[in-house]
């Protein structure tokens, strides 16, 4: 079984190799710095790789984590971003906030009712809409479906 240090040093080594290879297309001046850095990254990664192979120890960086919760949050964020592209800032924001306020709210003894979660989310989304759109004139995404 590979330990986390071996995996990370191999990954970094691959990144260094990839960067070196891609820099082949650049002009002389454009490729100089990236290649210097890629070589440095490769050297450090090799050192780390050697060390990780010498001192094999079991590491369990993800111990005690409920993977389901982490994955659901990440999936939620991905859905949120995708939704924002289609239906815009307001609807996606309300749905995202409301869902997770309710979902993680199940951990508490006093659960939060779905309707209340929805209202809190609407208020928050609206508040930040005013701050960003009306005060700081940042054009928030309107969503493809609504002609954004």
């Amino acid at each position: 079984m590979l330990n986390s240090n071996t995996i990370s040093s191999l990954t970094f080594l691959m990144i260094a190799a990839g960067a070196w290879y891609l820099a082949g297309d650049f002009t002389e001046m454009g490729s100089f710095f990236p290649r210097v850095i890629a070589s440095m990254l490769a050297v450090f990664s090799l050192l780390q790789l050697a060390m990780s192979l010498m001192h094999k120890k079991k590491e369990t960086p993800f111990a005690g984590i409920e993977t389901g919760r982490v994955v659901s949050l990440l999936a939620g964020i991905a859905t949120y971003v995708a939704l924002m592209i289609f239906v815009g800032y307001i609807i996606s924001g309300i749905l995202f906030l409301a869902f997770f306020t309710w979902y993680f709210g199940r951990d508490y003894d006093q659960r939060i009712p779905a309707v209340r979660a929805l209202l809190i989310s609407a208020a928050v989304t609206a508040g930040f809409y005013i701050v960003f759109y009306h005060i700081f004139t940042v054009p928030l995404p309107e969503g493809i479906l609504f002609g954004g």
Partner: peptide
């Protein structure tokens, strides 16, 4: 009161949008 405020805000946005 809280509920009312939130729904007014929501409505305002939908209208504006």
């Amino acid at each position: 009161k809280y509920l009312l405020l939130a729904s007014i805000l929501l409505l305002a946005f939908l209208v504006a949008g």
